[in-house]
């Protein structure tokens, strides 16, 4: 379990992390979301033991990150932002160094090394110097380093940054596979990543928690939640359909997109306008080319919570 109590980090007068309090249990995959400079990386650095907090406490698996830092670090696998590694080393000797520093027992060492080589498909680049590797491979070496000792807690700062879509998919699958028994905290800018791997999301901005919920619940805060997206055949007049839909009691407002001959109908609070729109369309003889319910848009929730203007 990870336990943060009023965790605060100040740089001079600048407050990077402002009294963060949260807990994470095993089995949770927590996504840290927030604009750049929100305090995500600072929080992760404190948990990993790289920075000490100005005030407050944090513990990992019962070990205080300040007073029992070595014990806490043993429980953690950490991928720092940008996945730094020693450029002059080969991937193999780099991972062997990690195994030695983490004091992985001789009997486990070879097996674990082979497992992570396999898991992250490093086989072809093991004897290549890290500074000759592509960004994607460097990131994977960084991930391999973090999971080498099969830690109870994984802290990954932007784990898929710089990966191509296939590699992103692979890394997300890896995270999903490991998530059952572990605590995983990832930070990301990519909201689709939260949907793909997280079962909990914390949105922070200016060092404060603004939202802490499951991605599903966060989406339902979106004004797109239960909105109905309607696309018409080109022969149909969008404006007539728009004003008809707008007059339905279930619909609060609409937004039209003339280029696509489509519109989105936002529901009045607590209503689901799909059925009413379908009935109306059938009665009026409209030709839909597309009709579906929106589940909500995380990026819109994110922007409205963190102070950006919603679309």
């Amino acid at each position: 379990m990870i336990n943060c109590k009023a965790l605060t980090k100040k740089y001079g007068n600048f407050v990077a992390v402002n009294e963060l309090t949260f807990q994470v249990q095993a089995g949770e995959v927590l996504g840290f979301l927030g604009p750049n400079g929100a305090g995500k990386t600072t929080t992760m650095r404190i948990l990993a033991g790289f920075l000490s907090p100005t005030a407050g406490k944090a513990s990992v698996c019962g070990f205080d990150v300040e007073t029992q830092s070595t014990e806490a670090k043993r429980k953690i696998g950490y991928l720092p932002e940008g996945a730094p590694s020693y450029p002059e080393m080969t991937s193999r000797s780099f991972l062997e160094f990690i195994a030695d520093s983490r004091k992985i027992s001789i009997s486990n060492r070879q097996r674990r090394l082979e497992e992570v080589h396999e898991l992250l498909q490093l086989g072809t680049v093991l004897d290549q110097k890290i500074d000759t590797l592509s960004k994607g491979f460097r990131r994977r070496v960084g991930l391999a380093q973090a999971i080498l000792h099969d830690p109870e807690v994984l802290i990954l700062d932007e784990p898929t940054d710089g990966l191509d879509p296939n590699q992103k998919h692979e890394v997300r699958r890896l995270i999903n596979r490991m998530s059952e028994r572990k605590i995983i905290i990832i930070s990301t800018h990519l909201l689709e990543e939260v949907d793909a791997v997280c079962n909990r999301a914390i949105i922070i901005s200016d060092g404060k928690i603004l939202a802490d919920d499951s991605p599903k619940n966060l989406e339902s805060k979106s004004k797109f939640h239960n909105a109905v997206s309607v696309k018409l055949l080109n022969s149909m007049n969008l404006n007539i359909v728009d004003s008809a839909i707008n007059s339905l009691p279930e619909v609060a407002s609409t937004r039209i997109d003339e280029n696509n001959n489509s519109l989105i109908a936002f529901p009045t609070k607590g209503k689901t306008p799909l059925e009413a729109i379908t009935k109306l369309g059938a009665a009026e003889g409209w030709d839909f080319s597309e009709l579906h319910v929106e589940s909500g848009r995380l990026d819109e929730v994110f922007r409205s919570i963190t102070g950006g203007t919603a679309r």
Partner: peptide, 14 residues
């Protein structure tokens, strides 16, 4: 400079 210090100091070493 290269950021590897973050890696080194988060290993379980005193």
């Amino acid at each position: 400079k290269t950021g590897t210090i973050e890696l080194l100091l988060t290993l379980p070493l005193e």
